[in-house]
Design a binder for these strands. Structure first.
Lengths: 229, 229
DNA sequence: CGCGGCTTTGATGTTCATCAAGTAAAGTGG
DNA sequence: CCACTTTACTTGATGAACATCAAAGCCGCG
């Protein structure tokens, strides 16, 4: 959790985030920003923590998760670089109603939330950018959750495999960054059934599996299962 | 779908929506606003329609819904007065990715979206109000969807009954504004099972049912089922 | 009156969670 | 480095939860 000033010259966020700022404003913002690094497996914040920062994932991969009232763990979403992480809660509550944990070593850009809010008030274009980004992020999570609710288990597994391949790694061969249990927590099914359906897909020659390494062999069939399952 | 200028003096939205405006700005906004009335059952807009307006539900009850890729209908959420209806899509897309239909006779306050966006740029406090409202609405929908995914059918029915009683009608006796099929579409289960579990709850003396009129007799038990089911 | 949509119940089979038991892999302390 | 513990993975058997199919009654509406 070392802290250091960010070198904004090489910062990918600039294009997106600083769209609406002039050079002077960028410098100002840059000065107030810190970078924080988290090791794989470490907790960024927990359900119930007070919201003081506005966080933006620069590198790595994290999971947003919570505990249901029945005690069952549930993963809300994964976030990859340039996704908001401060999404839910941040503008609607004073404390987080979900936790964030690093799945891979991750770096955050970290702003003071009050300063961000102040800047929203002062800079209309920045406000619109935030609204658009926030809106897109929410839409995506809502749509994904609705889709998963309509799918059978096979469809859900197809969905998550294509998600990793096409949205996260841009490659039909990849290393699963999460356990079978975590996949179950994300798409609302038991660990055993995650494994069972992986095996089915392997037997049907749709996948090659060795440990956490997945190779999707029959992309069309997987897409078909995803759509109809 | 009659149009008329809104009488802002008696408008409930003023407190919430115009929080950040001075008297002059309110008058300006008021001038540009129209009210639209929709009869029960009529369509406000459909999936794919271009987004030109910013809509706010003043009176009535509507459903936000969509069609899954498999062709199955799905209700995303109900919206009651003072809820945003222009929520999903509006700031993130150029066309709606869901439809809105009136469940009860409904009246909307209707603004031009571009003018709203312009006002967001010009008025920082208004921007923050919009962000907070948008954020709260999204959070609610996301959380509800996550909760439903973890519940068994009995828990889902308990959930939706308590939702109508406590969130919509503020009364443990109420008329269901929707069909059994629509309830199924909202909480992802078949019409038959909605009916079956209604019957179970009736046999267990938790409910009295006659047609669309529901009376919740055992509130504690229903809450318990909602939590653990 | 007849048609279509909503409601209800029962019978049936599929999908899925749970339980159990075993193997493999990964971390821990001596 | 090895014994030990824990956690992850895997498969099978079983029963519960759920969807589907079928049939019938009800009601509103043209």
């Amino acid at each position: 959790m070392e802290k250091s000033l960010c070198n904004c010259d090489n910062c990918d966020l600039k294009v997106l985030f600083y769209n609406s700022m002039n050079a002077e404003e960028i410098l100002l913002m840059c000065d107030k920003k810190t970078e924080k690094h988290y090791e794989k497996g470490s907790t960024i914040f927990q359900e119930g923590d007070e919201i003081k920062d506005f966080l933006y994932l620069k590198t790595g991969l994290v999971k947003l998760h919570r505990n249901g009232p029945n005690g069952k763990a549930q993963i809300i979403s994964f976030a990859k670089p340039l996704d908001f992480v401060s999404l839910l809660s941040v503008f609607s509550d004073s404390s987080y109603n979900y936790s964030v944990t690093a799945i891979e070593n991750s770096t955050f850009c970290c702003f003071n939330l009050d300063e961000i809010k102040q800047f929203i008030r002062e800079n209309g274009n920045f406000a619109m950018s935030i609204i658009e980004k926030l809106s897109k992020s929410s839409d995506k999570i809502i749509l994904e959750s609705l889709e998963i609710r309509q799918k059978h288990l096979r469809g859900r597994i197809a969905y998550i495999l294509l998600y990793f391949a096409e949205k996260i790694y841009n490659n039909y061969t990849f290393d699963l960054p999460v356990s079978r249990r975590e996949i179950g927590e994300l798409i609302s099914m038991t660990t055993e059934n995650v494994i069972r359906i992986f095996s089915e897909f392997r037997k049907d020659k749709i996948l090659k599996i060795s440990g956490h390494t997945i190779e999707i062999n029959d992309i069309n069939k997987l897409h078909q299962i995803e759509r109809l399952g």
